[in-house]
Simulated scan of single mutants.
Amino acid sequence: MPIDPVLAETLRIVAEEGTLEAAARRQHMTASAVSQRLRLLEQQLGQRLLVRAKPARLTEPGQAVVRFARRHALIEHEALAELGLEARGESPRLSIAVNSDSMATWFLGALAGFARRHDAQLELLREDQDATARHLASGAAVAAVTSSPVPSPGCSVTALGSLVYVAAAAPAWWERWIGPSDRAQTTRVTAEALTCAPRIDFDRSDELQATWLRRLGVDPAGTPRHFVPSTHDLAAAVEAGLGWGMLLTFQADPLLASGRLLPLGGEPVTPPLFWQVAKTPSRLLDELTEAVVSTARRELRQE
């Protein structure tokens, strides 16, 4: 049984909106009609596609159908444009999973250049770079900036380069956990101090600080940590002395130069980033990829 693209599109909208009622409003129909479409699609495919909770959740077969719906809508829109016919409904929506630090530095510039040439709607799904690939697998995104070089199902991978992070802390943190601070920093950071002193992680999947600690022979599992899930606010928390953290060089450099932060030493952490995108024959996705890759090659460290 082939997948009905109209019914699959309804499933996609339910997944995006979270409830049948919200999906019904977006499609200008009743919630009962949306439910009937979903039941018909599940009957045709012989699979349970949606867990009807709040918010609604896709099953694994449902994720596959949503991936199909996203790619079908994109191909249809471009085919109609090439035929000189007006596309139905809204312009294509490109959902992209991206880490907060890329969004705060180079990624929005790449999207701005792309958006000046195209009318596609862009939806950014913010996630740690170690977790963005799951949005590709679930069908929630057609592309992602990720730390994984292993392609998600139906995706291609391109290396982008690396962001550069350095370890730093405020003088107040240094004085409490290391000793009196001065410009010369005659007192050095020790493994013993780092075992007791708090660090700041973006979230529970953030591995930057843990990577730096392991290089110094410190087990990160046994060290205290705070969570600040914002690139800007994490830097502000480090400056305020809440804990030490790995900061992007564009954040750290002026603070280090002014003495508002002190370097903790050690090698910078430079996690590589990759661009994963659906292997759908699409001019829009090709041009999005070109914009992202060309900007990354200019802005990120290239090994």
Rank of each mutant, 00 (worst) to 15 (best):
G222H: 11
L80R: 14
Q129Y: 15
L160D: 09
R297Y: 13
G139P: 03
L49K: 06
R176T: 15
L20F: 11
E299M: 15
R116F: 02
E290G: 02
L41C: 01
L284A: 00
W275F: 09
F107K: 04
A235R: 02
P281K: 13
A291N: 09
M29V: 14
R183A: 10
Q251G: 03
V98A: 14
A169W: 08
A278P: 00
T10L: 08
T211G: 09
A168T: 06
A184C: 06
G109V: 06
H135N: 07
S282F: 04
G265W: 06
P61C: 03
P171V: 07
L256G: 00
R12T: 01
A197F: 13
A120D: 13
R93A: 04
P180S: 10
A172K: 06
H226Y: 12
T158I: 12
Q63Y: 00
Q276F: 10
T195S: 05
T30M: 10
L124V: 06
F227E: 11
L125D: 05
D203K: 02
E76W: 10
A193P: 02
H226V: 01
L49F: 07
N99I: 09
A133H: 08
Q27E: 05
W177K: 00
A235T: 12
L234P: 00
A184V: 02
L284H: 05
G259C: 06
P180T: 02
V145Y: 12
P281L: 09
D219K: 03
S162A: 14
V98T: 08
T105W: 15
L255M: 13
P61T: 08
H232I: 11
E76T: 11
V6F: 13
L108I: 02
V157N: 08
P5K: 11
R70N: 05
L85F: 07
E78N: 01
